[in-house]
Design a protein around this nucleic acid. Structure first.
Length: 597
RNA sequence: GAUGCUGUAGCUCAGUUGGUUAGAGCUUCUCACUUUUAAUGAGAAGGCCCUGGGUUCGAGUCCCAGCAGCAUCACCA
């Protein structure tokens, strides 16, 4: 059911059409400037008024550029965000992709002849906040020194049928900026991201920064000669990570396919194929819990380089992320919550055992399972008998170390059981050549010297199969084709996966992954399957009474059938009065007929 | 999955120990106004108080259940 304001706007749309104005014109509107263009061009002029700090714009008042060739014919297009109507002159604010600017409309400029319809009716009555228009005019500054466009003509480009939340900004008595009626409800912001983006400019900036971040990584890797590639999202065997997959079905092949949880095994096949370095910005899908740092689909860049090891990769990641910070934030220091994170090289490097020793004071490197379990229990970690040595170490690390690692830190040399795709450590028994980059208490990257011994790899997969048989839903599946590729020979390779969403959260200081995804996964909106007017008429309700019945909350014919006829009859009387209906009251017998009782 | 907080007009939010017809600002509508700045002034409209039960003479308010969002935890990278 439409709100009063929506009905209103539909009427305006029809009225415009009656007047011969197309609310949705087909032809392009030739824009000459963006709002940012104008502000930039104007800031070159030495027009700042030194004593105008208390005015809105800070420019000298009453500047007029109607004869200046640079500023006298400006064509802008954008969305109307506010009106200040003052009789035969008005101000409005326009927002385009680059910012907001004030527009000045004067009746006698828009309508030089006696017919003032264009101003009095079209502009003042038929335009609304949210409509998209194009304007032509010249630049000037107002009495208070605000940069504005004096509009000579305007054209409606789109009539908006839904009201936009009106967010207003002002300056309070303390001189601080205040926002009024901000559009803040997280559910509505995520479900209707388009509205969020229109009314919350800082949200647009977050996503611009995210794209800068991706471009920065792409440029960094491309410039070094690595090849950006695409590999399958639909995979017959999900591999490369420990996670539960989404399952789907291909009809023609009549086979199960999985949405990829990682693309690691495909990128390694390409290294086998002879490329020196490949990378892919990959949407991965994991059928697991959702929270502030997890969305079922998320983005990683995975990157593999032949003839390198994990130590080389540490240097590379350090350099790359430092560059990302410079490109996105302009500095290596980024504020995240209450912390300032400095991505300047070199980052701290600790082995996992060193990290645990640093934060617990206990050396676990030579402990057996029983001692580890006791240590974990003493720190309040919930343990059970299925947890092996490596799992206990992982739990200890996650509990004692990870949350405390705010500055970027590399943690190296993990237990072998947790890393089935990683080469065994060159000198430390029972460990693998693996590192994670931790930042702001969360993992942002995970890298290995890649396992390239096909026999060892097969044994690790078989170990995973045994875990799966014991009910571990995340154990990796054995991928025969991948093993076949390894048997042809993969050079020594360093590989990394870097979480784009989490890095974006840090670089843009956003507390939730939902704030760096345009369309985060949400529960579906509850939708009542409404009956149409025709349904009600077919059920016996006269057309004039359908709105009244709907108004009483009977939105489906089934609901009407279940209604008590006595109550409905009484309520109809009330609604009839409220809606000021002329139609005579139906009889009690009529109403009984509608409800089927 | 557990616990906590929240759900009132298109938007942001008040609503007292349970007590007449649920309020405000913005938005919308009508009128006035030729440089405004959250424009202003006058008037009006706009509510399944999330849903369903219950207690009560009486529920927006108290109790129970459910739904949705958020937070923390668990699971999970």
């Amino acid at each position: 059911m439409l709100s009063e304001q929506e009905i209103n706007r539909r009427h305006k749309r029809e009225e415009l059409m009656r007047m011969g104005i197309d609310p949705y014109p087909a032809e392009l509107f030739d824009v000459t400037h963006t709002i940012a263009n104008i502000r930039a061009a104007f800031s070159d002029k030495t027009t700042r008024s030194p004593d105008a700090t208390d005015t809105q714009g800070g420019y000298q008042p009453h500047l007029d550029f109607s004869t200046d060739p640079q500023f006298n014919t400006i064509r802008l297009a954008g969305r109307l965000m506010s009106f200040r109507i003052m009789g035969s002159a008005s101000f409005a604010e326009m927002q385009d992709a680059t910012g907001r600017l004030q527009l000045y409309f004067r009746r006698d400029d828009l309508c030089p002849s006696d017919d003032k319809t264009l101003y009095n009716t079209v502009f003042k009555k038929l335009l609304d906040i949210g409509d998209i228009i194009g304007i032509e005019g010249h630049v000037f500054t107002t009495l208070t020194g605000e940069l504005s466009i004096h509009v000579r003509s305007f054209k409606l480009l789109n009539k908006a049928l839904r009201p936009l939340p009106v967010v207003k900004e002002g300056v309070n008595e303390q001189g601080e900026k205040e926002t009024y009626d901000a559009f803040t409800d997280p559910e509505q912001r995520y479900r209707q991201r388009y509205v969020d983006l229109i009314v919350n400019p800082q949200v647009r900036d977050v996503f611009v920064k995210r794209t800068k971040l991706v471009n920065s990584i792409r440029q960094f890797l491309s410039q070094r000669g690595y090849l950006e590639v695409e590999t399958p999202i639909l995979q017959p065997i999900h591999g490369g990570a420990a996670a539960r997959p989404f399952r789907t079905h291909h009809n023609s092949l009549d086979m199960t396919l999985y949405m990829r949880i990682a693309n690691e095994l495909y990128l390694k096949r390409l290294i086998v194929g002879g490329y020196d370095g490949v990378f892919e910005f990959a949407k991965d899908f994991r059928n697991e819990g959702m929270d502030r740092t997890h969305n079922p689909e998320f983005t990683q860049v995975e990157f593999y380089v032949a003839y390198k090891d994990y130590l080389w990769m540490m240097d590379t990641i350090e350099e790359m992320v430092e560059q990302v910070a410079l490109d996105v934030a302009g500095t290596t220091k980024v504020t995240v919550g209450n912390n300032t994170i400095d991505f300047k090289r070199p980052w701290k490097r600790l082995t996992m055992f060193e990290a645990i020793q640093e934060y617990t004071g206990v050396d676990v490197s030579s402990m057996d399972e029983a001692d580890l379990r006791q240590l974990a229990e003493s720190r309040g970690i919930r343990v059970d008998s299925t947890m092996g040595k490596s799992k206990l170490i992982d739990e200890l690390f996650g509990d004692a170390c990870e949350p405390k690692l705010i500055q970027p830190t590399f943690i190296t040399d993990y237990p072998v059981e947790m890393s089935p795709l990683t080469k065994k450590h060159r000198s430390k028994l029972g460990l693998v050549e693996r590192f994670e980059a931790i930042c702001n208490g969360k993992e942002i990257a995970n890298a290995y010297s890649e396992l390239n011994d096909p026999i060892d790899q097969r044994e690790r997969f078989e170990e995973q199969l045994r875990l799966a048989e014991r009910g571990d839903e995340e154990a990796m599946a054995l991928d025969e084709d991948f093993l076949r590729a390894l048997e042809y020979g993969m050079p020594p390779t360093a590989g990394v996966g870097l979480g784009i969403d989490r890095l974006a959260m840090i670089m843009t200081n956003q507390p939730s992954i939902q704030d760096v995804l345009f369309f985060p996964q949400m529960r579906p909106e509850k939708k009542v399957d409404l009956s149409t007017d025709v349904d009600f008429i077919e059920a016996g309700v006269p057309a004039v009474w359908v709105p009244a019945v709907q108004r009483l909350g009977y939105l489906t014919v089934d609901q009407l059938r279940a209604a008590s006829p006595n109550k409905l009859f009484n309520d109809l009387g009330g609604v009839r009065k409220k809606l000021k209906m002329d139609a005579p009251m139906p009889t009690m017998i009529d109403v009984r007929g509608w409800t089927g009782n």
